[in-house]
Amino acid sequence: METATSASASATASVIQEIKHPWMMADPWFMVTMLGIYLYFVKEQGPLFMQFRKPYELKKLIIGHNVVQVLSCIYVLREISYLSDNAIYIFWKCRDLGSSPEMVRRYFELAYFLFWLKTSELLETVIFVLRKKQNQVSNLHIFHHFSTLTLIYILIHYNRNGLAAYYVVFLNSLVHIIMYSYYLVTAVADKGVIRALTPVKKSITVIQMVQFGLILTQVAFQTAICGMPKVVFGYFTFVIMVMLYGFYDFYTRAYKSPPQGKSHASVE
């Protein structure tokens, strides 16, 4: 006999299969092409282009980018609160999409918005390159932006845990509001204020690591209680583990070792 949990998951899968996604997200080729161009520019063509040029200042672009990110994350939190009836923090609960056309529509509209939001975050690396801050184009930075976009694609096409999957987005949006607000302040403040805010930068790294720990905790609960496709579980867990290790490694090198220059992947 099919359990209530598996029946709920089947209903969610049926709803997802009936959705017609925008052509840019209907298959992976658009995303793969974008990521290919991104990697080629930030690793090869961009540094070559900047080799004999002075760094661009790009202050207005940086301020605009940070403002857009903060406002976008506030919108995301609002939508998640609506979809989850303000109960997204109950991360162990199994949540399907239900049968309400309004809920299904807003679920996927949010997923599409997240796809473009994560695409816009690729601009950060481009800014690093154009400002000749190639040391900030670390493997962790590239992996982070590369993998988050692929995870949103998985959210659109292969999510079998319904609204529970937005717990990760909820946490990430909270972190990004703090992070991009800090970057916005440092983009417009004088050097004295930036120095005074140095402890905040350290705290943001700690918050990011806590975020990954909470995400892994939810994955364990969702897998045990609700079930999760093995491939999705494997890839998602791998990504989060790599990022947790990467941020911990950065933290130990940047804050527990003698300073060796700035290397944080941030738009400052």
Results as ranks from 00 to 15, higher is better:
residue 6 S to H: 05
residue 7 A to M: 05
residue 8 S to A: 13
residue 8 S to Q: 08
residue 10 S to H: 07
residue 11 A to I: 02
residue 13 A to M: 08
residue 13 A to T: 07
residue 15 V to W: 14
residue 18 E to H: 11
residue 21 H to K: 12
residue 26 A to D: 07
residue 28 P to S: 09
residue 29 W to A: 12
residue 30 F to H: 03
residue 34 M to H: 10
residue 35 L to F: 05
residue 36 G to I: 10
residue 36 G to C: 05
residue 45 Q to E: 15
residue 46 G to M: 00
residue 47 P to I: 04
residue 48 L to Q: 09
residue 49 F to G: 04
residue 53 R to M: 13
residue 54 K to Y: 13
residue 55 P to S: 00
residue 58 L to W: 03
residue 59 K to L: 03
residue 60 K to S: 13
residue 60 K to Q: 14
residue 61 L to R: 05
residue 63 I to A: 04
residue 65 H to K: 08
residue 68 V to D: 11
residue 71 L to N: 09
residue 76 V to R: 02
residue 78 R to W: 14
residue 82 Y to Q: 09
residue 84 S to N: 08
residue 84 S to Q: 04
residue 89 Y to L: 12
residue 90 I to T: 12
residue 93 K to D: 06
residue 102 E to W: 09
residue 104 V to I: 12
residue 109 E to W: 11
residue 110 L to N: 02
residue 111 A to I: 10
residue 111 A to K: 07
residue 112 Y to L: 07
residue 116 W to R: 00
residue 118 K to D: 05
residue 122 L to V: 03
residue 126 V to P: 01
residue 127 I to S: 00
residue 129 V to C: 02
residue 131 R to V: 06
residue 134 Q to D: 13
residue 134 Q to H: 07
residue 136 Q to V: 00
residue 136 Q to L: 03
residue 136 Q to D: 01
residue 137 V to T: 00
residue 138 S to V: 01
residue 139 N to T: 14
residue 142 I to V: 01
residue 144 H to K: 07
residue 147 S to W: 02
residue 147 S to D: 02
residue 149 L to M: 06
residue 150 T to Q: 08
residue 152 I to R: 01
residue 152 I to Q: 00
residue 155 L to Q: 01
residue 155 L to N: 08
residue 160 R to C: 06
residue 161 N to M: 07
residue 161 N to A: 09
residue 163 L to K: 11
residue 165 A to D: 02
residue 166 Y to W: 10
residue 168 V to G: 01
residue 172 N to R: 06
residue 173 S to E: 02
residue 174 L to K: 05
residue 175 V to G: 08
residue 177 I to D: 08
residue 177 I to Y: 04
residue 180 Y to P: 01
residue 181 S to A: 07
residue 181 S to L: 02
residue 182 Y to R: 13
residue 184 L to S: 08
residue 184 L to P: 04
residue 185 V to K: 07
residue 185 V to G: 11
residue 185 V to E: 06
residue 190 D to E: 15
residue 191 K to L: 12
residue 191 K to N: 12
residue 193 V to R: 15
residue 194 I to W: 09
residue 196 A to K: 15
residue 197 L to N: 12
residue 198 T to K: 13
residue 199 P to F: 06
residue 199 P to A: 14
residue 199 P to M: 10
residue 199 P to E: 10
residue 200 V to I: 13
residue 209 M to C: 09
residue 209 M to G: 01
residue 210 V to N: 05
residue 212 F to R: 07
residue 212 F to C: 10
residue 213 G to E: 14
residue 215 I to E: 09
residue 217 T to K: 14
residue 217 T to Y: 15
residue 220 A to V: 15
residue 221 F to I: 04
residue 221 F to K: 07
residue 222 Q to R: 12
residue 223 T to H: 07
residue 224 A to R: 09
residue 226 C to H: 00
residue 226 C to K: 02
residue 226 C to M: 04
residue 226 C to Y: 06
residue 229 P to H: 04
residue 229 P to E: 02
residue 230 K to H: 05
residue 234 G to M: 15
residue 238 F to W: 08
residue 240 I to T: 03
residue 240 I to P: 03
residue 245 Y to K: 15
residue 246 G to M: 00
residue 247 F to R: 02
residue 250 F to R: 03
residue 253 R to D: 14
residue 257 S to L: 13
residue 258 P to N: 08
residue 259 P to M: 11
residue 260 Q to D: 14
residue 261 G to L: 03
residue 262 K to E: 14
residue 263 S to E: 10
residue 263 S to P: 06
residue 267 V to G: 03
